[in-house]
Computed example of a mutant assay.
Amino acid sequence: MSADLRWPDGVAKRVLGEVDSTNAEAARIAASLTGPTWILGLRQTAARGRRGRAWANPEGNFAATLVMRPFETTDQVALRSFVAALALMDALILATGRPESVSLKWPNDVLLNGGKVAGILLESMGTQGNLTLAIGIGVNLIAAPPADSVEPGALPPVSLAGETGIEIGPEGFLDLLAPAYARREASFTTYGFAPIRTAWLDAAAHLGAPIRARTMTEEVHGTFDGLAEDGALILTTASGRRTLPAADVFF
């Protein structure tokens, strides 16, 4: 991994003292975009995660959205959740110098010492040919929600400061993340999903181990055996191989 920390060419940055949510702000400014833009909210008043869940985001934690106009088909655009996870991993390794402490959890969480330190929320607006993508990222830099605030069986939330003693502000973290994302984005747009998939699996938590995957209709138990070419979760179960495009995973 290169440690070039220059702000990426052609990418804008907006830092807001307060915002309801950086993904909501992305939707508001989408029509005026002239290129990819990072929106950093130093304080969010209505942060949210996957499936509309609330996301605790006290001041000092990281809340940002990268908004862009991708050119690929909708299914390919969605693979940027893996691009963003790798970029987050890269930024955390740069911040800590501890690559062994960072791992990735399908579909879109980043773990530090086995606890959830960051999450990713992708939202798209518009139609094919005129699509805007918002990649929302939240990182517990200084504080994590209490363990009893997450659903039973979910990984405990952790913070960067709590796990490592390292303190970095949101703007400082963005200066690590934006170049890291630009490098992974360049790989994705040049070579496709295959190298992203390989790199993600190299850092995947519990690969080859038993997990539970809960969809909207069932809970599937099996061995986590990899990612399909479209990013879906591959499980080997007692009744055979299953491929799940969407689920919540529990270890």
Results as ranks from 00 to 15, higher is better:
155 L>S: 08
144 A>T: 00
194 A>K: 14
213 A>T: 01
196 I>Y: 03
170 P>C: 05
228 A>C: 07
172 G>W: 13
217 T>I: 13
121 L>R: 04
249 V>E: 07
126 G>N: 03
231 G>M: 03
210 P>I: 00
126 G>I: 05
158 V>C: 02
213 A>D: 01
137 I>F: 04
134 A>V: 12
144 A>E: 00
175 D>W: 12
206 H>T: 05
169 G>Q: 05
205 A>R: 11
211 I>V: 15
186 A>D: 14
205 A>D: 10
206 H>A: 11
231 G>Q: 03
206 H>D: 08
211 I>C: 09
193 F>D: 02
149 S>Y: 13
157 P>M: 15
192 G>P: 14
159 S>N: 05
238 A>F: 14
207 L>T: 08
186 A>C: 10
198 T>V: 13
131 L>F: 12
170 P>I: 05
204 A>V: 06
170 P>L: 05
197 R>V: 04
191 Y>H: 13
177 L>C: 03
152 P>A: 01
195 P>H: 06
205 A>E: 12
183 R>L: 12
167 E>F: 08
148 D>P: 10
155 L>R: 13
137 I>D: 02
208 G>V: 04
183 R>N: 09
124 S>K: 10
206 H>G: 05
203 A>Y: 02
182 A>L: 04
247 A>I: 04
119 G>C: 00
219 E>F: 08
160 L>E: 00
130 N>M: 12
147 A>E: 11
184 R>D: 07
139 V>P: 05
172 G>H: 13
178 A>L: 06
205 A>W: 13
186 A>Y: 10
191 Y>L: 12
198 T>W: 09
234 I>W: 04
133 L>H: 12
208 G>E: 02
248 D>N: 11
135 I>G: 07
165 G>L: 13
220 V>F: 11
176 L>A: 00
227 L>S: 01
174 L>E: 01
224 F>E: 03
125 M>L: 15
195 P>S: 05
200 W>A: 00
132 T>W: 15
154 A>P: 06
132 T>H: 15
197 R>N: 04
177 L>T: 01
179 P>N: 06
136 G>P: 12
227 L>Y: 02
249 V>A: 08
151 E>I: 15
185 E>G: 06
235 L>R: 10
243 T>F: 09
150 V>D: 01
208 G>Y: 03
128 Q>E: 14
199 A>R: 11
121 L>P: 08
129 G>M: 14
190 T>V: 07
201 L>N: 01
247 A>E: 01
125 M>N: 09
201 L>I: 02
134 A>Y: 14
